[in-house]
C-alpha cells in the first residue's frame, strides 16, 4: 500500500496519470523533470526521438533516486546525434509478504534530420521481473522543428502491447514549443508544453537562464512548481531539481551527465 502511495505521489508531482509506462517516467533526468515536459522541444534531451538529430554532442546521463527510501530508480541514458538509448531499473523491494516489485525498462530511438525538420522513432520496452515476469513494448514517433522556435511533438504508443493482460497501453500525444535567445543579456530558454492530450491533458511552462557554467531552471504546471539548475565543467554536468506540490511532500533528484 505504501508503495502504491509513493508511486501515485510521484505522479502527482509529475502531474501525469499512472499508466503502465510509469518506470520510464520515473527515470527522467533532473533536467527533464524540472522542465515538466517542455523538454520535448529541446534538442539536447533524448525525450523526443525527433530531436535526436539536432543534438550537439553525446551525453551519458545517469540518475538515481530513492523516494522515501521505498522505490529506488536506477537509470542511464546515452544520446548522440541521431541516436538515443536508455536503461532503467525500478526496484520497490518487498512490497508485501514474499512480494517484490522490480521492473526493467528500456528505450532506444533514432532520428533523421531533414533541414529544419527532424523525424524519429523510438521503441520502449517494459520487462516486469517481479512479482511476475512479463514483457511489453510500444512504438513512438517524434517530430521536431528547429525554426525560430523549437517545436516537438511526440506520439506515444502508436503500436503497443501492454505487459499487463488486463491493462492497456493506449496511445497519447504531447507537444511542446520552446524559444531560445537573449534574456536580459543572458542566454535563455522559455517554453510551453501540452502533455497527454488524449488521456489526462496537462499544460506546463518552463524556463531556463544560462550563465555559462551555471544554468537556473524553473518549471510550472497546475500541480507542481519545480526549481532546478545545473553546473557544468568541461567533461561533466550536475543537474538538480526540487519539486514543490501544494499537497504532496517536497521531492528532489540529481543527475550526473558525462559528455
Amino acid at each position: 500500500m505504501r508503495f502504491l502511495l509513493v508511486i501515485l505521489g510521484i505522479f502527482g508531482l509529475w502531474g501525469r496519470g499512472a499508466t503502465v509506462d510509469v518506470p520510464l517516467d520515473l527515470a527522467r533526468s533532473a533536467q527533464a523533470w524540472c522542465l515538466l515536459g517542455v523538454d520535448l522541444a529541446l534538442p539536447d534531451l533524448a525525450t523526443n526521438p525527433g530531436g535526436l538529430p539536432f543534438a550537439a554532442s553525446w551525453h551519458l546521463c545517469s540518475t538515481f533516486s530513492s523516494t522515501f527510501g521505498v522505490v529506488r530508480v536506477w537509470a542511464i541514458s546515452l544520446s548522440t546525434q541521431g541516436f538515443g538509448a536508455e536503461a532503467v531499473l525500478v526496484d520497490g523491494g518487498e512490497i508485501g509478504p514474499n512480494l517484490h516489485y522490480r521492473v526493467w525498462a528500456g528505450r532506444a530511438g533514432a532520428g533523421l534530420r531533414l533541414g529544419q525538420f527532424g523525424l524519429g522513432g523510438q521503441v520502449r520496452v517494459l520487462r516486469p521481473e517481479q512479482p511476475k515476469a512479463l514483457l511489453g513494448g510500444a512504438l513512438d514517433l517524434g517530430f521536431f522543428w528547429a525554426g525560430p522556435v523549437y517545436v516537438g511533438i511526440l506520439a506515444e504508443s502508436l503500436v503497443s502491447f501492454s505487459p499487463y493482460p488486463h491493462e492497456g497501453w493506449p496511445p497519447d500525444l504531447s507537444l511542446a514549443a520552446a524559444w531560445r535567445g537573449d534574456l536580459g543579456g543572458f542566454s535563455g530558454t522559455v517554453g510551453v508544453g501540452f502533455m497527454d492530450l488524449l488521456s489526462l491533458p496537462a499544460w506546463a511552462l518552463a524556463g531556463a537562464l544560462d550563465f555559462g557554467s551555471v544554468e537556473l531552471r524553473l518549471g510550472l504546471r497546475a500541480t507542481a512548481l519545480s526549481l532546478g539548475g545545473s553546473v557544468e565543467s568541461s567533461w561533466f554536468a550536475l543537474d538538480w531539481v526540487f519539486t514543490l506540490h501544494p499537497a504532496l511532500p517536497l521531492s528532489f533528484r540529481v543527475s550526473f551527465t558525462l559528455r
Partner: peptide, 8 residues
C-alpha cells in the same frame, strides 16, 4: 575551474 561567461 574558471571559464568565461557566455554573454559577458
Amino acid at each position: 575551474f574558471s571559464q568565461n561567461g557566455v554573454q559577458t
